[in-house]
């Protein structure tokens, strides 16, 4: 079964078959990450550029490792310390990278739609969205799905609660699209100021009480309170108040199914959205998510760069 996408902009554009293929491919790559010699020659001679206009440790490292473990050449460009600070436009930067025959450009940007803008203007390189503003973060959603599938054996029919700053979370949006496509029930919860309008139309159940959202859930995904954004535009009175009403702790976690798993895209704000007891508890699969992230990104790079360009 063929993979027909040239770019990965969001999970919104991915069909059920696409997602299944990505997850199966990732399962095959997982085995490599557990070997002594973590390298295969699959993408040798391919060039992957990580173009990051926003800070990132986990995602950038994960994409870099994914490329390197498949023998591709991976280069990191961050906005600070590059020609971006000299006033070059996004399109010019990307066209220059494309002129150096990059096969894949992995891009993170604070503006929603920036990767899509590039994908429409580049003729040769593939673009992978590694997070754009409050829009999408598809590789995070796919690694979430892989982690859920490994623990539950399926995705269809599960109830997944996503809790936190839904309004500014690209992870929530990508998770919502992908989980709905795969047939899961998605509950979104947070303070009313963090719940944008239109979520029901996207297929979610919306709650302002964390306890109702968690009740009988198979999976609880806690979102990070984005402290760096909280400074500029405050959506909650204080972090302490937020923690009081919306943190996941050992008490409210009991409302979920006994075998529920707890996920978090990281980095953790311990004591804000998640208590340390839960973050380190037996139900957490947070580090498995990180491990699966490398395999999922290997799958995406393979599916985009492992074929020829002829159309």
């Amino acid at each position: 079964m063929a993979f027909s996408h040239k770019h990965i902009i969001g999970t919104q554009q991915l069909s059920r078959e696409d997602i299944e293929l990505i997850l199966e491919t990732a399962e095959s790559f997982k085995e490599i990450n557990q070997r002594d010699i973590k390298k295969v020659p699959t993408l040798r001679g391919k060039t992957i550029i990580n173009l990051f206009y926003e800070n990132s440790t986990r995602t950038r490292t994960s994409f870099e490792l994914a490329g390197k473990r498949m023998s591709a050449d991976t280069i990191n460009i961050s906005a600070s310390g590059s020609s971006v600070t000299k006033g070059e436009t996004l399109e010019d930067t990307a066209k220059n990278i494309e002129a150096m025959n990059a096969d894949v450009i992995v891009m993170r940007h604070s503006c929603s739609g920036a990767p899509d803008y590039l994908a429409k203007r580049l003729t040769k390189s593939s673009v992978i969205n590694a997070g754009d503003g409050a829009h999408e973060h598809p590789s995070q959603a796919l690694l979430d799905l892989l982690t859920i599938k490994e623990h539950k054996g399926r995705i269809e029919g599960l109830t997944v609660a996503i809790i936190g700053d839904i309004a500014r979370s690209r992870v929530a949006r990508s998770d919502l699209y992908a989980l709905k496509t795969m047939g899961a029930t998605v509950r979104l919860a947070g303070p009313a100021t963090m719940l944008p309008p239109g979520l029901e139309e996207m297929g979610a159940e919306v709650y302002t009480d964390i306890n109702e959202a968690i009740k009988d859930a198979d999976v609880v995904i806690m979102l990070r309170i984005q402290l760096e954004r909280e400074g500029g535009n405050t959506l909650v009175p204080t972090l302490r108040e937020y923690a009081q009403f919306f943190a996941l702790n050992t008490e409210n976690l009991k409302l979920a199914k006994p075998d529920a798993i707890v996920m978090h895209p990281g980095p953790l704000n311990r004591g804000v959205e998640i208590s340390s007891y839960v973050a380190d508890g037996s139900q957490n699969v947070i580090l498995e998510q990180v491990e699966n992230g490398v395999a999922v990104r290997m799958a995406l790079l393979y599916l985009l760069a492992g074929g020829s360009d002829e159309e």
Partner: peptide, 22 residues
Amino acid sequence: VDVTMYRDDVGQGVVRPLGKTE
């Protein structure tokens, strides 16, 4: 063993689905 990742024609033609090495 699945040899798809080691083939000498990766990058030519369509992307081949991967099997699992166990």
